[in-house]
Design a protein around this nucleic acid. Sequence first.
DNA 1: GGCTGAAGAAATGTGCACATTCTTTCTCTC
DNA 2: GAGAGAAAGAATGTGCACATTTCTTCAGCC
Lengths: 234, 234
Amino acid sequence: MRQATCKIKANPRADEAIHCAIEAAILHGRLPPGLRLREHRLAAIFGVSRERIRKVLHRLAAERRLEIVPNRGARVPCPSEAEVRAIYEAHRVLEAGVLAQLSRLASPVLLDRLDTHLVEERAAAQRGDRAASIRLSGDFHRHLVDALGNAELSRMLRDLLGRSSVMVTVYEPAHHSPCAVDEHGTIVAALRAGDLAGALHASRHHFLHVEERLRLIPPAQEATVDLEAALLTR
Amino acid sequence: MRQATCKIKANPRADEAIHCAIEAAILHGRLPPGLRLREHRLAAIFGVSRERIRKVLHRLAAERRLEIVPNRGARVPCPSEAEVRAIYEAHRVLEAGVLAQLSRLASPVLLDRLDTHLVEERAAAQRGDRAASIRLSGDFHRHLVDALGNAELSRMLRDLLGRSSVMVTVYEPAHHSPCAVDEHGTIVAALRAGDLAGALHASRHHFLHVEERLRLIPPAQEATVDLEAALLTR
DNA sequence: GGCTGAAGAAATGTGCACATTCTTTCTCTC
DNA sequence: GAGAGAAAGAATGTGCACATTTCTTCAGCC
């Protein structure tokens, strides 16, 4: 009866909230790669016991959002350039398979929806909204996969995008230049024409362009981060 | 100093061993889908504290090897037929992407290695070794992905195969008939000929055949399982 | 002066006690 | 006799205390 009254075990999904908060902070780049996440500090920030934090951190590690080394705590992953390229390559290969499937059963409805998306993307690029461009660019590829209506495939892509989003901070494509949008358009056009080879070609070159633009940015030297602000945003 | 002497915290990877034991038992079908895994029982079997078991179970759940529902414990997943088909479809789509990539850079060395594998597969099929056939069939697809040398892709496939292996128990393709082997052979032949369309076609039909053979087998009614034997095997 | 090593501080890991929730069973009522 | 409800038993969830490991700092020595 110690904490039964005040402490409320009430919140059955407090874990979930904390999990989401940390995951979002990582995915949005608010936590620099390599940053150490100490259990005590997090427990204080979220106002929960250390055990709760522990559980969440280990779950995030199992989901590969964090890296935990025994007795040394958790860190935001700091992927090498090779790993980054592997993730892009995996995405490229996966998308090739998706396009092969879509070329057989793409509906006019889907194609129109993709066109609508392209309009948005071009608008964002034209007004120089970099944040929106990055988001919409990811959404384009998400739409392609989601069109298949396969939860497994959607999850796989979500995983890959999640892991590469960290890297936008580290290895930042110089700019998400407007040409990327046109490359998306080329893919859609090929799909509409029922031209699988063309779609594969366009997709492949799109990814090669993105990879080409990868720049190694010096690791942020454990810049002082306002953990509390980064985690509690939104 | 309570248990410092006898209990040995010695084993730093006891968790790992337990994790592997349970995972292997699931993947090899020694634990029927839907089976409940109680923490106390497992703790007794492995001779460790319940906390240790808890940690492992939750990790397995994060890896989607187990299903945990809050306050109700862990169960071996019991995928619906729809989920099974989704997993096969995901595998098919992924393999299409892999083949597109391989058709551009398949080396003679790789092709020869695949041929060697086919010989093994045919041998197993001819002598009616069902267990070996299933294993080798999985290995064939694994080899295709591994040939790209991309850890991300290999892991994705490993995941899919892991989840579908459970189902061999539930929805068991009537027999892994020898024709499946020949379908593998068709894929390799197309690759060797540099015929991407042919390889895609062969792969697609291979998967459709496998899915066609899926049979719904009535859930095993929580058959009495010797947990201890199933978990400690090997 | 720089390096080594030991002691203290801090962070992570683990078992245990107890709280909570779920399941089962027994009883009482209609 | 069947169904609803309550109580007992069993299983899971959580905070805490303490063990262990790692990191830091500082003193001593070459």
